[in-house]
Design a protein around this nucleic acid. Structure first.
Length: 596
RNA sequence: GCCCCGGUGGCGCAGUGGCUAGCGCAACCGAUUUGUAAUCGGUAGGUCGAGGGUUCAAAUCCCUCCCGGGGCUCCA
C-alpha cells in the first residue's frame, strides 16, 4: 500500500498502482455518499478505469446534474473527515448473510467458488462498508484530487436484457496538478473533435434528412478523393485490379451469401415490382459474382479485386458517431482470390502495404489483434489450424505488437484487425484482413489446378484504411485538422496588403497554379491581420503575404500555420519547395524558420 | 434498441407562460488600403426539430415522434 508522502519517489509501476488504489477508494467514498443522499439506492459494482472510476447504482430516479454536485460535495466532506480504510476478511457464506437485501451483491458472491474468503472494506470508522476485491489507500485524505464527471445508463453485467443501472463516472489523481493536466487533455481532445472541425473547416456536415450519412463539401470531398487516389496508387504497385459493382441486389443474392440470415437487421431493403432488393452492406457477394463469372486457372491466382463501392448499413440509432460510425460509407476494400499456399505471401504483402501507408499519416502505433475461431463456424478444423498458424506466424515476423483473442474470429474465418486511437483515446478499427472459407463454398468458387483437378479458392477480405469516412475522422483528430500539404484542400492563401497589390497577388497565384498548387487570393477589404487570422483558423499550411517590397523582387513573405514568419522568399523557391513537399507527402513543412 | 441530457437565423449561444424572439460570428452593402491572429458603419436573415394537447395567452408546461450528445449494448 503506497503512501502519499513518498509520491515523488514512486516508480511508474508504483504510481499506477497508487492511482488504482486511490480510484478504487474514491469509488467507495462515492458509494457512501450516494447511500447517504439516496438511502434507497442499491450498490452494485465500482471498478477503476484508465483515468478514474465509476460506480453503478440501482436507483428509482436517475441522477440529475444537481444530484451529482451534491454527491461530490458529500464525498469531499467524507474525505475531509479523514478515516482509515479497514479490510475485514470473512467466508463467502458469512458475507452472503450480510448482503441478503442486495440481490446484486448476492449474485456476485454466488459467482465465487464456495469456501473462498472474501473481504469487506470500510471507512468512516465503520459507518460505511462494502464488499470489495481489495486495494486501497491508507486513509481517505490520500485521495488527493477527484471530480465526478458524468452519469450514464448502463446495464447490469453489460447485458441489455438486464436492468439498466445508473452509472456515475469520476476521475481521481495523485495531485491537483495531475488532475488539471487531465482535464486540460479532455478539453484539447474536444477541440480536436472531428465533428467540430469538420464543420469549422468546411469539410462535411450532417442533416437529419439523412441520419448518420455525411454530406461532403468540396474541401472534404477533395480529401476523400485524395485518400482514394493514395490507395489507388498503392494498388498499381501491389498489382490489384479495380472493379465496379452494383449497389442494389435481388434478395436472392443475400440469401445465398448468408447475409439475409445473419445481417438483415443491418441492411436497407427496397420493394420494387413485387420483388425484394437489398442495398449492399458489403462488397463480398459482388466480388464472388465477378470471380464466378469466368473459369479460372491456378496460373491467374492470386487475383486481387479492389472495389470502392458505396455501402449502406443500418447502424442502430444509439451507436452512430460522426464520421467514425456512419450508415453510408466507402471502404478501400479488396478481395484476394488465392490458393491455400498463397495465403502467407498475400497477407505479408498486405501488411507491408499497410505499414508504408500508416507511416505516411503519422500513425506510428497501430495495435493489432489476431482473432481466432469462434464456437459457431464453418469449415473443418484442419483448415482453421493451418489458417490460424499462418496468420500467427506472419504477425510474429512482422515486428508489430499484437495480441491474440480467442473466439473473436468471424464465423467464416480468422482475422487480423488493426486499431488506431482518436483524440479522446477511443480506439477505432481501421484496417482488417480476414480469411473466408465460406464464400467459396456458397458461391462455388473454384480454380483448375496444375493436374486439372478443381479446387476451392480461398478468399481474403482486406481493407487498409478501412472505411474512408472513419479514417478521415480519426485522421482529422490525429492532426487536429491541420492536414499535411499534400492533403490540404487549400495549400496557400496569398494575402495582398493593400488593393494595389491584388494584381501582383493574382500573378503569383497563376504561377503557383501552373505548378499544380492549390492557392487562393484573399482580396477582401479586410486588413491583412484579419486575413492572416482567417487563414490560420482554416489551418491553411502557408500564408504568402505580398506588398510593395515583395512585388518589387518577385517574392512573397512566407508564413506557416505554425506561426513562423520566414520573410521574403523568391517565387521560384516557394514553388520548388511546395511542389517537393507535396510530392514527398511530407508531414512537416519543408519551408521552415530554421532554413537559410 | 436502452438510460439520461439536449434541439432557438448558416455557425455558436441567451431567452422557462405575457407586447413586434435577442446577442456574437459568418453573409450582404458601403466606407477604410492597412506589414503577420479580429477596421468601422449599415442591411438582410428565424413557421423557436415535427405533430398533438393544456391555457385568455406556449420557444417556455404535458404527450408522441424525429434528430443530435454522453454512456450501455451491438459491430459480418
Amino acid at each position: 500500500m503506497a503512501s502519499v508522502k513518498d509520491l515523488k519517489d514512486l516508480s511508474p509501476q508504483e504510481l499506477d498502482e497508487f492511482r488504482n488504489d486511490m480510484r478504487h477508494s474514491a469509488a467507495h467514498v462515492l458509494a457512501e455518499a450516494v447511500l447517504k443522499l439516496h438511502p434507497e439506492a442499491k450498490l452494485t459494482i465500482g471498478p477503476t478505469i484508465e483515468v478514474g472510476f465509476y460506480y453503478d447504482f440501482d436507483v428509482d430516479e436517475p441522477f440529475t446534474p444537481d444530484d451529482l454536485k451534491a454527491i461530490e460535495k458529500e464525498m469531499r466532506r467524507s474525505i475531509n473527515r479523514n478515516s482509515k480504510f479497514v479490510e475485514r476478511e470473512v467466508t463467502r457464506e458469512e458475507a452472503r448473510e450480510q448482503v441478503l437485501d442486495n440481490p446484486y451483491k448476492v449474485e456476485i458472491l454466488d459467482g465465487i467458488p464456495e469456501g473462498t474468503r472474501v473481504t469487506f472494506c470500510s471507512h468512516s470508522d465503520g459507518a460505511f462498508e462494502d464488499l470489495c476485491r481489495g486495494g486501497h489507500v491508507e486513509q481517505t485524505v490520500d485521495i488527493k484530487a477527484f471530480k465526478l464527471l458524468s452519469t450514464a445508463g448502463a446495464y447490469w453485467r453489460g447485458d441489455e436484457n438486464n436492468k439498466m443501472l445508473q452509472r456515475v463516472y469520476g476521475t481521481a489523481w495523485e495531485s491537483k496538478e495531475a488532475q488539471a493536466d487531465y482535464l486540460h487533455r479532455i478539453e484539447e481532445a474536444e477541440r480536436r473533435d472531428h465533428r467540430k472541425l469538420g464543420r469549422e473547416l468546411g469539410l462535411f456536415f450532417f442533416d437529419p434528412i439523412a441520419p448518420a450519412s455525411p454530406f461532403f463539401l468540396p474541401k472534404g470531398a477533395f480529401v476523400v478523393n485524395e485518400l482514394t487516389a493514395f490507395v489507388r496508387d498503392l494498388y498499381k504497385r501491389y498489382d490489384y485490379k479495380e472493379v465496379i459493382t452494383p449497389q442494389i441486389f435481388n434478395t436472392d443474392l443475400w440469401r445465398k451469401s448468408g447475409h439475409y440470415d445473419n445481417y438483415a437487421d443491418n441492411m436497407f431493403f427496397i420493394n420494387i415490382d413485387e420483388t425484394e432488393y437489398g442495398v449492399k452492406p458489403m462488397n463480398c457477394p459482388a466480388a464472388a459474382m465477378l470471380y464466378g463469372s469466368e473459369t479460372h486457372s491456378y496460373r491467374e491466382l492470386p487475383l486481387r479485386y479492389a472495389d470502392f463501392g458505396r455501402l449502406h448499413r443500418y447502424e442502430r440509432s444509439g451507436v452512430t458517431h460522426g464520421l467514425t460510425r456512419v450508415r453510408s460509407l466507402t471502404q478501400d476494400d479488396a478481395h484476394i482470390f488465392s490458393t491455400m499456399d498463397q495465403i502467407g505471401s498475400e497477407i505479408r504483402g498486405f501488411l507491408d502495404m499497410l505499414r508504408d501507408s500508416y507511416e505516411v499519416f503519422g500513425f506510428d502505433n497501430p495495435r493489432f489483434t489476431l482473432s481466432l475461431r469462434p464456437e459457431k463456424r464453418v469449415g473443418i478444423d484442419d483448415m482453421w489450424d493451418r489458417a490460424e498458424s499462418a496468420l500467427e506466424e506472419i504477425l510474429a515476423d512482422s515486428g508489430f505488437e499484437y495480441e491474440t483473442v480467442s473466439g473473436e474470429g468471424a464465423f467464416y474465418g480468422p482475422k487480423i484487425d488493426i486499431f488506431v486511437p482518436d483524440a479522446l483515446k477511443r480506439e477505432w478499427q481501421l484496417g482488417t484482413v480476414q480469411l473466408d472459407f465460406s464464400l467459396p463454398e456458397r458461391f462455388n468458387l473454384e480454380y483448375a489446378a496444375e493436374d486439372g483437378a478443381r479446387h476451392k479458392v480461398v478468399v481474403i477480405h482486406r481493407a487498409m484504411l478501412g472505411s474512408i469516412e472513419r479514417f478521415l475522422g480519426v485522421l482529422i483528430e490525429h492532426l487536429g485538422g491541420a492536414f499535411p500539404l499534400w492533403l490540404a484542400p487549400l495549400q496557400a492563401v496569398i494575402v495582398p496588403i493593400a488593393d494595389r497589390h491584388v494584381a501582383y497577388a493574382h500573378d503569383v497565384k497563376e504561377i503557383l497554379e501552373k505548378h499544380g498548387l492549390r492557392v487562393e487570393v484573399n482580396d477582401s477589404s479586410d486588413r491583412m491581420n484579419a486575413k492572416i487570422r482567417a487563414a490560420q483558423l482554416q489551418k491553411v499550411p502557408y500564408m504568402l503575404v505580398v506588398g510593395d517590397r515583395e512585388a518589387e523582387e518577385n517574392a512573397v513573405a512566407v508564413r506557416t500555420r505554425t506561426g513562423g514568419n520566414l520573410g521574403a522568399v523568391s517565387i521560384t523557391e516557394v514553388v520548388e519547395s511546395l511542389v517537393k513537399e507535396t510530392e514527398q507527402k511530407s508531414l512537416e513543412p519543408l519551408l521552415s524558420a530554421t532554413d537559410d
